[in-house]
Write a protein that binds this DNA or RNA. Structure first.
Length: 905
RNA sequence: GCGCGAUUAGCUCAGUGGUAGAGCAAUGCCUUGACAUGGCAGAGGUCACAGGUUCAAAUCCUGUAUUGCGCACCA
C-alpha cells in the first residue's frame, strides 16, 4: 500500500483492533518470541512473576507486563537472545475457595462430601477450563512471551522440584514441625504466614472489668480488655512487677466471672503499667503475648474457640456455639448484668486481618511445619553490594530490614489444593508422631518417619501428612525450576540463568523477591537475577487502591477495545513514575491513542508523497540537505542518546517523554510543517529527494525506537512503508551508527542554530499576527531587517513564511517602517508587519510595554547576580561568561524595544 | 514507636546546584490537501513552611506541618 492511488483507502483515523490482532497472530505463528538456548547471541532473560491461575488481567498486570515486554523487545533489537518465560502459580487458597464455592452452588456439596481425590479432580477440571485466562489477555496486550515454555507450579517437573527441595531442607535441618502459635484464618481454615496478615486499625471498645479478690471479699481488681469473649480461656491476670498499685496483690487469686473460677495474679514485665488499668487478662490460647506469658508462668492453655471462630465452651452455655463477634457483645452484656463492667471506652487498636479472607485472624496454637530460611547471609550481602541491583534503590533498606529480623516461615497450609507435604508417618506410630511436640531430621533415624519425593514402597504401612505447602513455597523456586528438571543442568538453564531482570511490585518483596534470592543461592549457588525493577502501584484518581469492591478498577480489555493495546501501553508508561504510586486517569490512555493516531497520520502524509525508494543505501553526501533537514536529523541523533541514557536507568517515563516530544513537537509540528513547501510538485526534484530521504530516515528509525512501547502500530507501519527486508520490525536490529556520524560537526551546529533561529522567529511572527487578530490571515506580508550574522536565504525565507502563514517576507536592511508598524525582535532580526493604516497604536504600545517589562525582569535578575563580587570570584568562569552574555543580550533587546516604543510617539 | 517516600501550574507529574518544564483542563483564534484523536497563540508557579550551607538552592543539610507506605505494637 503505497503511492497516491491507494492513499484514499487509508482511513483518516487509526483503527487499532484489526491491526493488533493481525500482528499478535503473525508474531506467534512466526515463532518470533521463541528463545533458542543454542544461540550464539548474548542472553537476556526474564521470568514472569506468575499470576494466579485464577487471575484476570488488571492494570497492575498491564503496567508490569508492558515493562517486561519493553525490556524484552528492546533487548531483541539490541541483538540479544531473549527468553521471556510465562507461567502461573496454583494459588492454593484462592483456587480452592473458588472451586468450593462453585461446588456448593451447583451441587450443594462441600469438599468433604466429595473427599480429597474427587475434589482435586474437580479443581483440575476447573483449571483446564478457566485457568490461565490471563495469558490470552497478555497476548492481547502484545506481550512477547515464549509461549512454548509456559509453566505451572503444579506441573509434574515443577512439583518434583518443590518436593525435592522440601526433602533436602528437612534433611539439612532447615525444616521442622512444631506446635506453635500461628496466624489462623477462621474462614479459610488454615494457618497463614506472618506476611499474609495485614494489620488494620479498628474502632473497638475497651471494656474495664472488675474481678473480686478471693481472700478480700468486697475488694475488686480492675482489668481492661477488648476481647471479653475469650474470658473463659483466661487462666491468670498479669501486672507489672514494679507496679506499686498492685505489688501487694501478686500471688493472690481473683474470681473469673464465667465460668466461675479462681485465677492467680502474676507479675510479668510484658505488662505496660500505663495502658488501661495496668492489668492484663491472660488468655494463652488466643494471644501470642499471653501464650508467652503463660509459658513463663506454667499456665494452662484453654482453647475456647473452634477453628471457624465460634465459641467452644460447654461450661458457658450462654456463649457456646456463638460466633466470636456475637459472643463479644453477649459476653459484655453478661458482665454488665453481673455488675462487673466499670466502664466502656471507644478504643482504636490494630487488628491482624487475613489477607485472603479479609477477616480478623486468630492466634492459634497448632501443629505446623516451619522453615528456618537458608542462605540469608548471601542474600543480604548480594543486595547490599548490588550484585543484585534494586531499582529504585531505596527498596534495599526495606529488604535488609526484613532479612535481618527474619522469622521462621510457617509453610504448611490446611488445604487440599497444592503440593502435599512429602512426609509419611508409620501407621502404628502415627498418632504419637502427629502429636509429637516437635519433629525434625532427628526423628528420621528412628525409622518411623519417611520424608521423600517418592512415597515409601510399603505404602500400606504409612500415612501421609494431610497438609499442603504454602503456594509461595513453590514460587520461590520459579527462576530455575521453570528452566530445568531436578538434578539436570538443561541447555536453557545454562544459557538463561541467572535471569537478567525481574519486574515486580514492591508489595511482594518479602513474599517472593527475598525468598527467591535465598532459594537461588541455596539451590543453584547463584543469584537468581541481576536486576530487580519495582513497579509503581496503580491507584485511582483519588489515590485509592484499585479494588473490585470499590468498582474503581477499569477493565484493561475495555481500555484496549477503546484505545488499542498500543494506546494503553504508551499512555500507562508515560505516567508511570519509578518511585511512587501512580494515579490512573483514563484521559492518560486517551493520550496514548492520540499519539498512535498522530504517528499514523504522519505516515499517511508520507505515503501521499509517493512510494518509498531505497533510501537506506543513499549516501546523504549526495543530497542537498537544508538546515531544516539536518536539524531534525540532529534531533534524532540526540533522541537516540537520550533513549540510551533513560533505558540505562530504567526510566521508562523518560523514554516515553523523549519519544513523544521528538515526534509530536520536533517532527510533526516543526519539521513536516517546515518542509511541506519542498514537496510541492513544482519544486525542484533534488529538494523533494532530500526531504523524502530525511522523512524516511527519521520515520524508519523512529518506528524502531517506538516499537517496544507500541509494538503493533510500528510493525504495521514498517510493513506499509516497506522499510524492512520483509522480516518483522521486532526482529530487525537497531542500527549502530548515528545518522550524522559522517557529517562535519560545524555544519551540523550551524544548521541547528539556523533552524532554531527560524523556528523562534516564526513564533514571534505568529504572535504578532495573533495580537492583531490575524492568526488565520494568509495575506499578511512581513519585512525583515536582518540581524548581523543571521543566515538568511530565499529557501529559509520561504520556510519562514510558510510556517508563519504569511504571503511573503521581504528582507530590507535598515528598513524605515511607517510609524507604529507592529514589530518584534527575532533571532533573525527586527521583524515588521506593515498593516497599511490598520495600526492600533494603543495595542502596539501595550504589547511592546509587556515585552519590556519581561526583559527588565530578566535584566534585573542578571544584573543582581553579576553585581555581586563573590559571584565573579567564586563561580566557574563558564557560568560567569554565560551570565555576561545574557546580560548583554537583554540590554540590547531592551534598548531596541525602547526605541520601538518611542517610535510610536 | 522505628523506617522509607511524597509535597512544583486548576489536575496528573518531570525536573541531582547555574534562565522553573510537559501533558491534560481552562481562554482566544483556526475545519489550512496528514491528523479536530488536529493546529496556532496567550494566560497560569514567592517549587508546603522555617532555618542553614553556598557566589548561587525546587535541587544539599536540619527542623516543622500535611500526607502515603512498610515494620513493630499496649491488652
Amino acid at each position: 500500500m503505497a503511492g497516491n492511488e491507494s492513499i484514499n483507502e487509508l482511513p483518516k483515523a487509526y483503527e487499532p483492533s484489526a491491526v493488533e490482532e493481525k500482528w499478535q497472530k503473525r508474531w506467534v505463528e512466526g515463532k518470533c518470541f521463541s528463545a533458542n538456548p543454542k544461540s550464539e547471541k548474548p542472553a537476556y532473560s526474564i521470568v514472569i512473576p506468575p499470576p494466579n491461575v485464577t487471575g484476570v488481567l488488571h492494570l497492575g498486570h498491564v503496567l508490569n507486563n508492558s515493562i517486561q515486554d519493553i525490556l524484552a523487545r528492546r533487548a531483541r533489537q539490541q541483538g540479544k537472545e531473549v527468553m521471556w518465560l510465562p507461567g502461573c502459580d496454583h494459588a492454593g487458597i484462592a483456587t480452592q475457595v473458588r472451586v468450593e464455592k462453585q461446588l456448593r452452588e451447583t451441587e450443594g456439596k462441600s469438599r468433604h462430601d466429595l473427599g480429597r481425590d474427587a475434589f482435586l479432580e474437580k479443581v483440575w477440571e476447573w483449571k483446564d477450563k478457566h485457568g490461565g485466562i490471563i495469558f490470552e489477555q497478555l497476548r492481547r496486550l502484545g506481550c512477547s512471551l515464549d509461549w512454548e515454555r509456559e509453566r505451572f507450579t503444579l506441573d509434574e517437573d515443577y512439583t518434583e522440584w518443590v518436593l525435592d527441595v522440601f526433602v533436602k531442607l528437612f534433611k539439612e535441618g532447615y525444616i521442622y514441625r512444631g506446635k506453635r502459635m500461628v496466624n489462623w484464618c477462621p474462614v479459610s481454615l488454615t494457618a497463614l504466614s506472618d506476611e499474609e496478615v495485614i494489620m488494620k486499625p479498628q474502632r473497638s471498645k475497651l471494656y474495664t472489668m472488675r474481678y473480686e479478690i478471693v481472700d478480700q471479699p468486697g475488694e475488686y481488681f480492675q482489668i481492661a480488655t477488648t476481647r471479653p469473649e475469650t474470658l473463659m480461656g483466661d487462666v491468670a491476670v498479669a501486672v507489672h512487677p514494679e507496679d506499686e498499685r498492685y505489688k501487694h496483690l501478686i500471688g493472690k487469686m481473683v474470681r473469673r466471672p464465667f465460668p466461675a473460677a479462681e485465677i492467680p495474679i502474676v507479675a510479668d514485665d510484658h505488662v505496660e503499667m500505663e495502658f488501661g488499668t495496668g492489668a492484663l487478662k491472660i488468655t494463652p490460647a488466643h494471644d501470642l503475648a499471653d501464650f508467652e506469658i503463660g509459658q513463663r508462668h506454667n499456665l494452662e492453655v484453654i482453647d475456647v474457640l473452634t477453628p471457624d471462630g465460634k465459641i467452644n465452651c460447654p461450661g458457658c452455655p450462654e456463649l457456646h456455639g456463638l460466633d466470636r463477634f456475637v459472643a463479644r457483645k453477649k459476653a459484655a452484656a453478661m458482665l454488665e448484668e453481673m455488675g462487673a463492667i466499670v466502664k466502656v471506652e471507644e478504643h482504636e487498636n490494630n487488628v491482624g486481618f487475613s489477607e485472603r479472607a479479609d477477616v480478623p485472624i486468630e492466634p492459634r496454637l497448632s501443629m505446623q511445619w516451619f522453615l528456618r530460611y537458608p542462605a540469608t547471609e548471601e542474600a543480604i550481602a548480594a543486595v547490599e553490594n548490588e550484585d543484585i541491583t534494586f531499582r529504585p534503590a531505596r527498596w534495599k533498606k526495606t529488604y535488609s530490614n526484613w532479612m535481618e529480623n527474619i522469622q521462621d516461615w510457617c509453610i504448611s497450609r490446611q488445604l487440599w489444593w497444592g503440593h502435599r507435604i512429602p512426609v509419611w508417618y508409620r501407621k502404628e506410630k502415627s498418632f504419637e508422631l502427629r502429636e509429637a511436640e516437635s519433629l525434625d531430621v532427628a526423628n528420621l533415624n528412628a525409622g518411623d518417619l519417611h520424608v521423600g519425593v517418592e512415597p515409601p514402597e510399603d505404602g500400606d504401612n504409612w500415612e501421609q501428612d494431610v497438609d499442603v505447602l504454602d503456594t509461595w513455597f513453590s514460587s520461590w523456586l520459579w527462576p530455575f525450576a521453570t528452566m530445568t528438571k531436578v538434578g539436570e543442568k538443561s541447555e536453557t538453564l545454562k544459557k538463561f540463568y541467572p535471569t537478567t531482570d525481574l519486574v515486580t511490585g514492591p508489595d511482594i518483596i518479602f513474599f517472593w523477591v527475598a525468598r527467591m534470592i535465598m532459594a537461588g543461592f541455596h539451590f543453584e549457588k547463584q543469584l537468581p537475577f541481576n536486576n530487580v525493577f519495582f513497579t509503581s502501584i496503580i491507584r485511582d484518581i483519588k489515590g485509592r487502591k484499585m479494588s473490585k469492591s470499590l468498582g474503581n478498577s477499569p477493565d484493561p480489555l475495555d481500555l484496549m477495545a477503546t484505545y488499542g493495546a498500543d494506546g494503553l501501553r504508551f499512555g500507562l508508561m508515560r505516567i508511570a513514575p519509578t518511585g511512587t504510586d501512580v494515579k490512573f486517569d483514563e484521559t492518560q490512555i486517551e493520550e496514548g491513542r492520540n499519539f498512535a493516531n498522530k504517528l499514523y497520520n504522519a505516515v499517511r502524509f508520507r505515503l501521499m508523497q509517493g512510494a518509498v525508494s531505497s533510501f537506506a543505501t543513499v549516501d546523504p553526501a549526495t543530497l542537498q540537505l537544508s538546515p531544516i533537514h539536518i536539524d531534525i536529523l540532529a534531533k534524532l541523533d540526540q533522541l537516540e542518546d537520550d533513549l540510551a541514557a533513560a533505558y540505562g536507568d530504567y526510566q521508562f517515563n523518560a523514554v516515553t517523554q523523549a519519544l513523544y516530544a521528538f515526534f509530536w513537537t520536533g517532527y510533526c509540528d516543526w519539521f513536516i510543517e517546515a518542509v511541506k513547501g519542498t514537496l510541492r510538485e513544482d519544486e525542484a526534484s533534488w529538494m523533494r529527494e532530500a526531504t523524502l530521504w530525511t522523512m524516511d530516515t527519521v520515520l524508519s528509525r523512529f518506528l524502531h525506537h517506538l516499537h517496544p512501547f507500541m509494538p503493533h502500530i510500528t510493525e504495521e507501519l514498517w510493513e506499509t512503508l516497506g522499510y524492512g527486508d520483509g522480516s518483522p520490525l521486532m526482529q530487525t536490529p537497531l542500527l549502530a551508527d548515528k545518522v550524522l556520524d559522517t557529517f562535519d560537526p560545524a555544519t551540523v551546529l550551524q544548521a541547528k542554530t539556523t533552524a532554531t533561529a527560524v523556528f523562534d522567529s516564526v513564533g514571534r511572527a505568529r504572535n504578532l499576527k495573533a495580537e492583531y487578530n490575524l492568526a488565520s490571515n494568509k495575506n499578511v506580508s512581513f519585512v525583515l531587517d536582518p540581524a548581523e550574522g543571521a543566515v538568511i536565504n530565499d529557501d529559509l525565507l520561504a520556510t519562514f513564511s510558510l510556517l508563519v502563514g504569511a504571503k511573503g517576507t521581504e528582507v530590507q536592511e535598515g528598513y524605515a517602517a511607517e510609524k507604529g508598524t507592529p514589530t518584534s525582535l527575532t533571532p533573525l532580526g527586527a521583524l515588521y508587519m506593515p498593516l497599511d493604516g490598520l495600526i492600533d497604536f494603543d495595542a502596539e504600545k501595550k504589547r511592546i510595554g509587556k515585552e519590556i517589562a519581561k526583559v527588565e525582569g530578566e535584566l534585573k535578575k542578571s544584573k543582581g547576580k553579576l553585581s555581586s563580587p563573590a559571584f565573579a570570584e567564586r563561580a566557574p568562569e563558564a557560568v560567569v561568561n554565560t551570565e555576561r552574555e545574557r546580560l548583554a543580550e537583554w540590554e540590547s533587546k531592551l534598548a531596541q524595544l525602547q526605541e520601538m516604543l518611542a517610535a510610536l510617539g
